[in-house]
Simulated assay, not measured.
Amino acid sequence: MRKGKLQQSVLVRSVFKMLGQKREDAAGPAVGRGVSAFAGEKETQVFSCAPVLVKDPEDAVLAVCRVCNSVAAAGASAKGVLVSLMLPEAMEEKDLKELMRAVDGACVRYGTAVIGGHTEVTDGVLYPVLTVTAAGGTTRAGLFDPSCVTADLDLVVTKEIALGAVSYLAKTRRDELLTRFSPGFIHGAADFSEDYSVCREAEIAIEHGAAAMQDLSEGGIFGALWEMADGAGIGLDVALKRIPIQQETVEICEFFGVNPYQMLSTGALLIAAADGEGLVQKMALEGIPSAVIGRTTSGKERILRNGEEVRYLDKPQMDEMYRVGR
Results as ranks from 00 to 15, higher is better:
Leu6Cys: 10
Gln45Thr: 13
Ala211Met: 07
Pro260Ala: 05
Val121Met: 04
Glu248Cys: 06
Ile288Gln: 13
Arg323Leu: 14
Arg302Pro: 10
Ile303Phe: 10
Gly278Leu: 03
Val121Thr: 14
Thr112His: 08
Phe181Thr: 15
Lys42His: 11
Ile234Glu: 05
Ser14Tyr: 15
Tyr322Cys: 05
Cys199Leu: 07
Ala30Arg: 14
Pro146Met: 07
Gly136Pro: 00
Arg323Lys: 14
Val292Ile: 09
Gly231Tyr: 04
Asp195Pro: 03
Ile221Met: 09
Ile161Asp: 02
Ala162Thr: 06
Arg311Ser: 14
Ala273Lys: 00
Asp275Cys: 03
Leu153Thr: 02
Thr139Ile: 01
Ser265Trp: 03
Ile293Gln: 03
Phe256Gly: 04
Arg33Leu: 04
Leu6Phe: 10
Ala30Val: 04
Ser70Lys: 15
Lys171Leu: 15
Phe255Ile: 13
Glu160Trp: 03
Val81Thr: 00
Ala232Phe: 07
Leu11His: 10
Ala210Thr: 15
Phe222Lys: 03
Tyr168Phe: 15
Ala202Tyr: 02
Met91His: 02
His208Gln: 13
Arg326Asn: 12
Val46Trp: 02
Ser290Tyr: 08
Gly209Thr: 10
Cys68Ser: 13
Gln317Lys: 15
Ile206Gly: 07
Gly34Leu: 11
Gln247Cys: 11
Ala232His: 06
Gly137Asn: 04
Glu320Tyr: 08
Thr133Asp: 03
His187Asn: 11
Gln317Pro: 09
Glu277Thr: 09
Gln214Trp: 12
Ala211His: 11
Ala268Ile: 06
Ile271Pro: 03
Tyr196Ile: 00
Ser84Glu: 07
Leu143Trp: 01
Gly276Tyr: 00
Glu89Ser: 10
Ala224Met: 05
Asp237Pro: 14
Glu308Ile: 06
Glu120Ala: 14
Lys55Ile: 01
Phe16His: 08
Thr249Val: 07
Lys55Asn: 11
Cys65Val: 04
Ser265Leu: 01
Lys5Cys: 12
Asp123Ile: 08
Met263Arg: 04
Lys241Gly: 15
Ile234Met: 06
Val10Glu: 15
Gly287Leu: 11
Ala113Leu: 10
Phe144Lys: 06
Ala151Cys: 09
Val52Met: 14
Glu24Asp: 13
Ser217Gln: 09
Met1Pro: 13
Arg242Cys: 14
Gly267Arg: 04
Glu176Pro: 09
Leu126Lys: 12
Ile252Val: 07
Glu58Gln: 10
Asp154Ile: 02
Gly40Leu: 06
Glu301Pro: 03
Met100Pro: 07
Asp25Cys: 04
Gln45Asp: 07
Leu99Gly: 05
Pro316Tyr: 08
Ile245Glu: 06
Asp175Tyr: 14
Arg23Phe: 12
Glu254Tyr: 03
Gly28Asn: 08
Thr122Lys: 12
